[in-house]
Design a protein around this nucleic acid. Structure first.
Lengths: 334, 334
DNA sequence: AAGCCAGTTGAACAAACGTGCAGAGGGAGA
DNA sequence: TCTCCCTCTGCACGTTTGTTCAACTGGCTT
């Protein structure tokens, strides 16, 4: 639920009550004055454990923000190089080379969630895709109070087996909760069976409303799908695609997808039949968003990432260290 | 010393060596990925204790910044009221009411030091006064790398007993170190014996250079002196003033000083003889600095604070809770 | 070459911290 | 009014973290 907190007009002394208020004060004392929790407990007339919990609350709830500044001169050579080669602001997440893909994903998602709050603000329309990366991310979002913002689902999530609504709506809801934003779901399947159905649907006014929102996004957040990786992305496991679809993608030289829209190594999408049935925004629409944040982890997604970069889909990239390294090594000159 | 760190052009893998680099990585892992220090130790191939130290280093050195955001709607009613009444951005430091004045000062100074780094940036001229408040503050500054900034001493520090140079230079040096800035000392006594000497000195070219710097300050940082408080400020203990001077101040209705320039309750300075011999910048000069940060703790300084506010010396105020409360209560309507 | 100093290191200990748990409080509904 | 359910509290325990200490390193002097 959105942070509301009963801190009414309790004027008078200095005990305006309200958990958030206490948390704020505890945070001041702990992070700005270096008191121990014990000392804070005494000042707040409560137990040390409660203070510990208050501080957890303060962190989890975004009252406290911890950020890390490279001393400008040495900003991860990697980030620097990625910026130069691809004109993309990169955030490289350190992960040990031997980490499993699951670990890697989890850690990138955690960092990404923390970094994200910098980009979110009031009065924004925020497009959110879905997939395992976005899902992991949604579980770690640091709340940040905003007004009048809107979360828009970028692509449908229904498939042959489930409506996908539960999964996707849960994910979206987490984003909405974290930022106190309204959530606009997109209740369509990930892929239509028949392009004509999509066309028809797209003409519906309720659909149009959503498409218009997408077209006016301020921020888009998405992962990258990699159809032919050893560990396929969510889209490719969940029964969204059939054998024939795969074969078609393979023939077309597809290296990845963003919000269920497929593309080739060079970023092109023309003539990829499946896109006619996909529900994600075409790249021209996506690129209208001034800030487009891509979260990637695992070397398997490298080709997909390179394609997305070629397509100019990304303005901000959050990526694990190993993949970042390969990105700059693979392509000596773009 | 200024952070230099031997992290040269060590290209290659991902082990560019350098303590700062490790600290940065540790900080990422600890604060952005919530690993335990033990886990980080393994990733960095070192002991847990070293990681603990690295993290301390990262915090002390400003690589990690921890900030606290009130959820905009409830920004300490006090800060709100001070803003409305005095047009000053206040930062209220929570301190228990029963805290001693020494505690109070220490805690305000600590918070102030942390808050300060937000205001400091590259290519700035930063005026710094001295006194017990500034001294306490200087001991807690969080380093922040800047280029081409300059610390300028606002007022002389010599007195009858010592040259004051040691004390003041130590204080200034800490500021300089923390921000990697050059330090411009002002080697004059706090008060001249004879106004004429001051006049003469002020015509010296070396003095002019410094006064010009003061006149082009971007930020000024100062405390408030309170001559008649039970616990007198540094200026009033150290042998800077004599009996006769006190009497004169008392007759003139002085309530405080900023950088050894005295003023009355209404902020006026005209006709206060001592100011003719003082070495601090006159208020017109001071007010040319776009940002003027005042750090105050202890109710004894309340009259002084009110005078400084009346004189329009302050744009940003860092003050302990008790004093802030009295400030808004004392004067129901400004 | 020996000696010295300043800076690091990990082990061991002590302090500070997070969390499961059982009990207390306090509405909303029966 | 009683009961159920939810939330919050402080305690007790195990874990995590800060710090002291002695040993070690590498550079510089004598």
């Amino acid at each position: 639920m959105v942070v509301t907190d009963a801190s009414g007009p309790t004027r008078g002394d200095d005990l305006p009550s309200g958990k958030t208020r206490d948390a704020l004060r505890a945070a001041h004392l702990y992070y700005l004055q270096d008191l121990t929790m014990d000392a804070i407990a005494k000042e707040l007339h409560t137990s040390r454990s409660s203070v510990s919990r208050l501080l957890s609350h303060a962190r989890a709830t975004g009252l406290v923000e911890i950020s890390i500044h490279s001393p400008l001169d040495l900003p991860s050579r990697l980030e620097q190089e990625i910026l130069e080669r691809h004109e993309v602001a990169a955030h490289v997440v350190p992960v040990p080379d031997h980490a499993s893909d699951v670990d890697r994903l989890e850690r990138v998602a955690l960092s990404a969630a923390r970094i994200l709050s910098r980009f979110i603000d009031s009065n924004q329309t925020i497009g959110v895709a879905w997939g395992s990366t976005m899902s992991a991310m949604s579980r770690h979002l640091a709340p940040k109070a905003t007004h009048n913002s809107e979360i828009v689902q970028l692509n449908g999530a229904g498939n042959l087996r489930t409506t996908g609504i539960l999964y996707a709506s849960e994910l979206l809801r987490r984003f909405g909760d974290a930022f106190g934003a309204r959530v606009q779901q997109f209740p369509v399947p990930a892929f239509f069976d028949d392009p004509a159905t999509k066309q028809a649907f797209w003409r519906e006014r309720s659909t149009r409303r959503l498409l218009d929102l997408q077209a006016s996004m301020d921020v888009a957040i998405f992962g990258i799908g990699s159809p032919f990786a050893e560990v396929p992305s969510h889209v490719y496991q969940g029964g969204y695609l059939e054998r024939a679809d795969y074969d078609a993608l393979s023939r077309d030289g597809v290296v990845g997808d963003v919000a269920t829209v497929f593309y080739r190594e060079d970023g092109s999408t023309d003539g990829i039949a499946l896109n006619e049935r996909a529900t994600g925004p075409d790249f021209a629409t996506l690129r209208r968003a001034p800030r487009r944040i891509c979260v990637v982890s695992g070397r398997a997604k490298l080709p997909g990432l390179e394609g997305a970069l070629a397509a100019g889909l990304i303005t901000d990239l959050i990526v694990d260290e190993g993949t970042a390294r390969r990105l700059v090594e693979d392509v000596p000159a773009s």
